[in-house]
C-alpha cells in the first residue's frame, strides 16, 4: 500500500502517557505484583535466551558437524571399563566377552546387546551395564557359584568339563582355580539336552547343592571324599547316590534333612569301624530312619557276632555282610538301630 498522501502530526493521545510509575507510589499489593511480574518476565527472557542459544548451537552444529547431532556424545570413546563382580571373573574376561570395538562411542553402545553377551556365558546370573560420563562403562556382575561338574559336549566341540550351578545352569566356567574345580564332584545319571544354543538346566541341582553344602559344613572329611553324585534315581526314588572315597556308595534321601543323614552316616561309619575291621561298601540313609551298612570283611578277620547273613565261604571276601553297629545310649538315632 502506498504511504498516506497527507502526513500531519497526530494530536497527543492518552496512550502517549507513560504508564510505569515509581514503586513507592504503588500500594503494597502493587509492589508485590510488580516483583512477581518481574520474576515472570525474567524467567520468560531466560527461557527465550536458552532456547535461542540452543537453536543457534543446533544450527551451527548442523552446519559444521552434523554427525554430532545423530549421537551427540557418541564422539566420546569408551576410555575405561570398570568391572564390579561378586565372583571370579576379571576385566580381561569382560573385555573379551563384550568385544567392544576399538573406537566405540560411549553413547552409541547397545547396552542391551552387551548384557545379552554377558549372560550368554551362563556363569553370569545378572549383569548391569552403566555409562559413567565422561567415558567409562561400568559392568556389575552377579555370578553363579558352581556346585558340581559334568562332562559335556556342545555340537562338534571336544567333550569338556562343564560346571553346574545350583539352579541347574550348565556353563563352561572361567576364572576358577583348577584345585577348586577338581574338588567338585561329578554328576552322574543326567542327560544333557540342548535348549537353543545352550544346554538346558539340569533339574534337581538344588538338592545336590544343599547336600554338598551340608556335607562341607558338618562333615568336611566325608565331603572331601564325595567324587560322584548320581541323579539317576532322583526322579524315581527321590534319592541321591553319592560315590565316596570313604564309603563305596551312599544313598541320601533327597527330600531334605541332609545334616541329620550326614550325622547318621558319620556315626555309622565310626561305630562300624570301631567295632569291626570292615571296608564299608554301601550305606543307605534314605529308607525310613534306619541305615544299613554293607561292608566287606577284611581278610583274616573273625566274623562279627551280630551278622545276620550266613558267613561267606572261605576265600569269598567280596560277599557283603550286613552289620548293625550298636549305637551308644546317648545317640539320637538309637531308635533306628
Amino acid at each position: 500500500m502506498n504511504p498516506p498522501a497527507i502526513s500531519l502530526p497526530p494530536a497527543r493521545s492518552w496512550r502517549d502517557l507513560p504508564q510505569p510509575i515509581k514503586p513507592r507510589a504503588m500500594s503494597r499489593e502493587g509492589r508485590r505484583r510488580r516483583v512477581l511480574a518481574a520474576a515472570k518476565t525474567a524467567l520468560l527472557a531466560a527461557t527465550l535466551l536458552v532456547t535461542g542459544w540452543g537453536g543457534a548451537e543446533f544450527l551451527v552444529t548442523l552446519k559444521t558437524n552434523p554427525g554430532r547431532l545423530v549421537a551427540p556424545a557418541g564422539g566420546t570413546p569408551v576410555r575405561g571399563l570398570e568391572l564390579r563382580t561378586d565372583g571370579v571373573l576379571d576385566e580381561g574376561w569382560a573385555r573379551g566377552t563384550l568385544a567392544l570395538p576399538a573406537q566405540a562411542g560411549l553413547m552409541t553402545l547397545d547396552l542391551a546387546a552387551l548384557q545379552r553377551r554377558l549372560l550368554a556365558s551362563g556363569q553370569v546370573e545378572r549383569a548391569e551395564l552403566t555409562r559413567q560420563l565422561p567415558g567409562s562403562l561400568v559392568v556389575t556382575l552377579h555370578e553363579r557359584a558352581p556346585v558340581a561338574r559334568v562332562m559335556g559336549q556342545l555340537g562338534e566341540a571336544v567333550p569338556q568339563t562343564l560346571l553346574v550351578a545350583r539352579d541347574g545352569t550348565v556353563f563352561a566356567g572361567a576364572g576358577y582355580a583348577p584345585e577348586m574345580v577338581a574338588r567338585l564332584p561329578f554328576l552322574d545319571g543326567v542327560r544333557l539336552q540342548l535348549a537353543g544354543s545352550r544346554l538346558a538346566p539340569i533339574a534337581g541341582m538344588a538338592a545336590v547343592a544343599d547336600l554338598l553344602a551340608a556335607a562341607r559344613a558338618a562333615t568336611p572329611a566325608l565331603a572331601h571324599g564325595f567324587s560322584v553324585v548320581s541323579l539317576a534315581r532322583l526322579a524315581t526314588d527321590d534319592v541321591l547316590v553319592v560315590q565316596s572315597a570313604d564309603v563305596g556308595e551312599v544313598v541320601f534321601g533327597a527330600a531334605g534333612g541332609f545334616a541329620r543323614q550326614l550325622a547318621r552316616l558319620d556315626f555309622t561309619l565310626a561305630e562300624t569301624r570301631r567295632q569291626f575291621p570292615v571296608e564299608p561298601l554301601r550305606v543307605n540313609l534314605a529308607v525310613d530312619s534306619r541305615q544299613v551298612l554293607v561292608a566287606r570283611l577284611l581278610a583274616g578277620t573273625p566274623a562279627p557276632g551280630r551278622a545276620v547273613l550266613p558267613r561267606p565261604a572261605a576265600g569269598s571276601v567280596a560277599t557283603p555282610v550286613l552289620f548293625f553297629p550298636a549305637p551308644p545310649a546317648s545317640a539320637n538315632f538309637s531308635h533306628a538301630l
Binding site: M1, A11, S13, W14, D16
Partner: peptide
C-alpha cells in the same frame, strides 16, 4: 488509501497545551 487520508485529515487537529485526546 482514500479512507485513511480522510480519517487522518479529520483527526489531525492540534490541541491546546496540557490537553490530550481520549
Amino acid at each position: 488509501l482514500d479512507i485513511d487520508n480522510v480519517c487522518q485529515l479529520a483527526k489531525s487537529k492540534q490541541l491546546p497545551e496540557g490537553r490530550m485526546v481520549v
